[in-house]
């Protein structure tokens, strides 16, 4: 199907880029991207992906819009207070670009639904606020061979990286690449690090990192540029510095190492996040709080 005159006009500023062109614009229209959460990071990411003409976005979130969200969650507004976030997001995105079909999942992401939700999408964008979900999303994306663009923020600081597993359908896909468990084998024990809710976060920081997640996603769909695979980007808003650190594949990784100990989704992601007992070489960290 060709683009209408109106669509060509809408996307003209990027179609004119030789790296995009009509061919790239069609790739965007065919792309299906799943966003975990309709919050701080997903807001700017979803807005730019919809604006760019991505054909299908899936968003999962079980919450309703709260006044304290509006400092950073720009998909929502005073008008949509108390409405389910995914409905608020869908309304905002539809107003921005009706070319983008939004599938709104008003539910929690769990070990029971994660794989069926991810299966229909080409790429996953993770911006969750807790470690349990990060490890769940990492493992599910790995098993389903879905590229995963992951971002996180804390007060004035952000982290961003892109994970791949090799082979599988979807957008451009360099072979190999480490996973989140290679980066951080285990999460902090519960209560050891305060959440954003407790610690606070500069709202615009969510914008910076969320927009960079959208950049990664668009590059992957278009098959252009260098993705952040094998690299961890860190951003310090106060110093205004970006740094890129090496993120190596860990041959001992419990998930993607040479002798994986996690071969399917775990039953329990509240602790899971920690490894099966036999694999723990170090003394288990206890909560000191």
């Amino acid at each position: 199907m060709n683009f209408t005159e109106e669509q060509i006009q809408r996307y003209s500023r990027q179609i004119v880029l030789k790296e995009v062109g009509g061919k790239g614009q069609r790739k965007l229209r065919e792309a299906k991207i799943f966003l975990i959460g309709a919050g701080g990071l997903s807001s700017p990411a979803a807005l730019y992906l919809a604006a760019a003409g991505v054909g299908t976005l899936g968003i999962i979130d079980a919450d309703r819009v709260d006044l304290s969200n509006l400092q950073r969650q720009i998909l929502h507004s005073t008008v949509t207070l108390n409405r389910p976030k995914v409905q608020s997001a869908k309304t905002t995105l539809a107003a921005l670009n009706a070319d983008c079909t939004v599938h709104a999942h008003e539910e929690l992401l769990t070990v029971h639904n994660v794989e069926s939700l991810f299966r229909d999408y080409d790429l996953i964008i993770d911006g969750t606020d807790n470690f349990s979900t990060r490890y769940l999303v990492n493992d599910a994306a790995f098993f389903l061979k879905k590229p995963l663009v992951t971002g996180s923020i804390f007060r004035f600081e952000g982290q961003l990286t892109t994970f791949f597993t090799d082979s599988g359908a979807g957008p451009a896909r360099p072979a190999g690449g480490p996973c989140y468990r290679c980066l951080y084998p285990e999460p902090p024990p519960p209560g050891m690090i305060p959440s954003c809710q407790e610690a606070g976060v500069l709202g615009v920081l969510a914008g910076t990192i969320g927009v960079l997640q959208a950049v990664e996603a668009l590059k992957l769909v278009l098959g252009i540029g260098q993705p952040l695979t094998g690299k961890l980007m860190t951003y310090d808003a106060l110093a205004m510095t970006f740094r890129t650190l090496k993120l190596r594949h860990d041959p001992n990784c419990a998930l993607c190492g040479t002798a994986p100990r996690i071969t399917k989704l775990l039953d329990d992601y509240t602790v899971s996040c920690t490894l099966p007992p036999a694999s723990i070489n170090r003394t288990k960290t206890s909560t000191i709080a």
Binding site: S42, L108, T110, D129, L232, Y269
Partner: peptide, 29 residues
Amino acid sequence: SIVPAIAGGSSDVGARAEAINRPPLPPHP
């Protein structure tokens, strides 16, 4: 550089720690 894992992002998005392993809960807890 000392770089700890950070998990902040969206607010309470899809899976609170205590709910992640369970079948779907009633909406809007």
